[in-house]
Amino acid sequence: MAIELKKSYRFAFYSSLILAVVLSLAMVGFMFYKNDLDYIFLAIFLPVVFLISFLIIQIRVEKFIYKRVKRIYDDVSLLETSSFTSRPITTDMKTLTEEIEKFAQDKKIEIDTLKIREEYRKDFLGNVSHELKTPLFTVQGYILTLLDGAMDDANVRKKYLQRASKGVERLIYIVKDLDLITKLETQDSKLELESFNIIELIQSVFDLLEMKAAKKHISLTFDMEYKDPIYVWADKEKIQQVVSNLLVNSIKYGHDKGTTEVSVENLIKNKVIVRVTDNGEGIAKEHIPRLFERFYRVDKSGSRKEGGSGLGLSIVKHIIEAHDEKIYIESVEDVGSEFSFTLEKAENRPE
């Protein structure tokens, strides 16, 4: 550890001055008593005594303070905080006080952050256990029923095995989505960037979800007629997943005979923004900051009326952030929601 002594000479100066004056007065008194007053000697004696006293006091006090301050630094270093232990040791009390206060503030922020993360961890574990135990218990229930004798009935056996198979498929769906998020977080999933027409991609997702939307009489539409293609530079497959997840969510929580509208607008010179707007249930303000967490539920009752892994929005966020882009949400309860995300325009359009 580097050592830097930020010296304050005020204490040593006044202490040395007092000593020099006191000793000089004592010397004057002694000379006066002996009737041998030597002014030249006194003129030399005073500054010499002052200088010697100053050096001794400054060095001693500095070492005294440094030893105790070093103990503070050593004790703090046990907490393994690189931001503090990497700094030089200082004997300047004001600087030291400021460093200790900043260190304490940083530690308080760190502890508060850890508490928040711990709450998130508890919520996540509770949510993931709920998501997994429902299909697990379903599969277990059907299998146990079959083992208890229901397998002897061919019709019951087939029906229960089909239901157990659906439970297993749901488990696989959840695990696959978790694996995808993990890969996106660790950047193990490579993006295959290419130029493609985002309008064409959105239309293809509309076509795929047409029947799902028709069941709730929800209309999937553009905000306007896009006569010219809009080319973006991104991973086509993953952006299709983003659009699909947002539209599926919109259909799930949309009102019967509602509308989901998609628009693509120029944001800045090299960016476009894709907006997915609906007039569905909307989301309460307190839920919005945590909406992209894995398995986070707006409905705290623990029931999930609609299917899905509960990871759709989390996957959307990770895919967009993997592209170094931004995703936004605006929502008003009982009015509707708007999810939007940015994409980079393609520099070279295909012929």
Rank of each mutant, 00 (worst) to 15 (best):
H130M: 09
K236L: 05
D75C: 03
K63P: 00
K159V: 06
Y142L: 05
K159T: 11
E62C: 05
L79P: 07
I230N: 00
V175H: 05
K115R: 04
G307I: 02
M1C: 07
I198V: 13
D106P: 02
H287D: 14
S303K: 12
E286M: 01
L46K: 02
R290D: 15
E169I: 06
S219F: 10
D235A: 09
K70W: 06
S16T: 05
Y296L: 02
E185C: 00
I181Q: 07
E200F: 03
H287N: 14
I44D: 03
K227P: 04
K285Y: 14
R121W: 13
S331D: 10
K252F: 12
Y173S: 12
I174Q: 08
I111F: 15
W233V: 00
D74H: 11
I100E: 11
Y120C: 02
K269N: 12
T134V: 12
K133F: 09
L78P: 00
N279E: 07
L79R: 07
D278A: 04
F64Q: 14
K6H: 08
K227S: 11
E344Y: 09
V175M: 05
Y73A: 01
V332I: 03
Y120Q: 14
L201Y: 05
I111P: 04
I56E: 12
T186A: 10
G167K: 10
S86N: 15
K238V: 00
R71G: 14
A26P: 08
K345C: 03
I329Q: 04
F13M: 08
S309P: 05
E185R: 11
F84S: 12
D112N: 15
V168M: 11
E265T: 03
Y173T: 07
K108C: 00
S53K: 06
I59Q: 06
